[in-house]
Design a protein around this nucleic acid. Structure first.
Lengths: 198, 198
DNA sequence: GTCTATATCCCGATAGAC
DNA sequence: GTCTATCGGGATATAGAC
């Protein structure tokens, strides 16, 4: 199982190329022709490995979504609500930071999300699950909206070009703090300062 | 100047039709042919009024962006920082709520934002101007990221389908409160309850 | 000045030869 | 596994009727 060498290699090369082109031109701005040209094959060859363009998009996004699922499952296994929130928020922020170029890509091309929704059981499920973890089992309206704003804001701002220059650790710390504050749980671990927001 | 009757009317009818079709099928899912058919003309006729599809998209989005500009100018004219923040945040939230179907449309569809960026001086300018209004002239990193998360979160969550069922006034109030809390300025006006978040 | 007819080119996708 | 050929449909253009 070490490698269906040729096919496996072409497939992964194709995905790597697609990711690069997607990042440069957006998904909508990247044609199968461009991918094929880059690989030195024809469009039809690309279609041998993936049945549709959406399938390529999904495959590009899959690793991040799988990790998010794993993190949420881990959070759900925590016994106290505090630990659940910390795990969910921490895992979410961590993924945002690590996959921020992917998020930027998705933001610049939101049509992708629909493609993913269609194939996976839906991003809807991710969002609903995350909301339940962070807002608790029976949240009031204010709490629900607050969590929605938080999730959207952290994800979008994390992938935004304004924050692109920040190193992972800095961005992670700030986003996590913002998340905790929005959830009414001021930070507990003090990296260095004990009173930062002057 | 009351009306270049035919042309002017066709143009505005075209925009109204485009907005409706965009909302139903998304921008990418709406072809010029569909717009033309709906109007009872040919594609080329549409092409006479607008040179590209992007131009139609821009024209659809223009009113919201113009209003935002006006609101920001109004905010900048305020003399105290507190008044500036209230005006900017209030205006921003108000526009989000009133144009939320437009926001949802833009989010659900790729490329549009880039199209708008290309034509107008860029959404970048809007964001930068708003950041300056809300974060002040010389913000530290934590403040900057906080404002970015807030702007992104309010806008995205405001247009999200999860909040679609809320009436304007309810959504406006909640978003405004969230914004004020994120800026470290707990609410001041009590619409009816004096202690709402139980 | 307003629109129709028509053409071009690229896209995603499919069929079938090698 | 990759190719050539081809399809239907989309955006974009131009020529010219009225």
């Amino acid at each position: 199982m070490s490698g269906d060498t040729v096919a496996e290699d072409t497939r992964s090369r194709l995905l790597a190329t697609a990711l690069r082109l997607f990042s440069e031109h957006g998904v909508g701005g990247t044609s199968l022709q461009m991918i094929a040209d880059e690989l030195g094959v024809t469009k039809a060859a690309v279609y041998y490995h993936f049945r549709t363009k959406d399938e390529i998009t999904e495959a590009v996004a899959a690793p991040a979504l799988q990790e998010l699922t794993a993190r949420m499952a881990e959070a759900e296994r925590q016994r106290t609500r505090g630990a659940q929130i910390d795990h969910a928020l921490g895992g979410f922020v961590d993924l945002i930071v690590r996959y921020r170029s992917l998020i930027a890509l998705f933001n610049s091309d939101p049509g992708i999300i629909r493609a993913i929704e269609r194939s996976l059981d839906g991003v809807e499920n991710f969002a609903a699950r995350m909301r339940k973890l962070l807002a608790g089992p029976d949240p009031d309206l204010a709490t629900t909206i607050n969590v929605n704003v938080m999730l959207a804001g952290l994800a979008l701002a994390g992938g935004a070009p304004e924050q692109a220059h920040l190193d992972d650790e800095t961005l992670r710390t700030h986003l996590f703090d913002i998340g905790r504050r929005m959830l009414g749980r001021p930070r507990r671990r003090g990296p260095k300062a004990e009173d930062r927001d002057s």
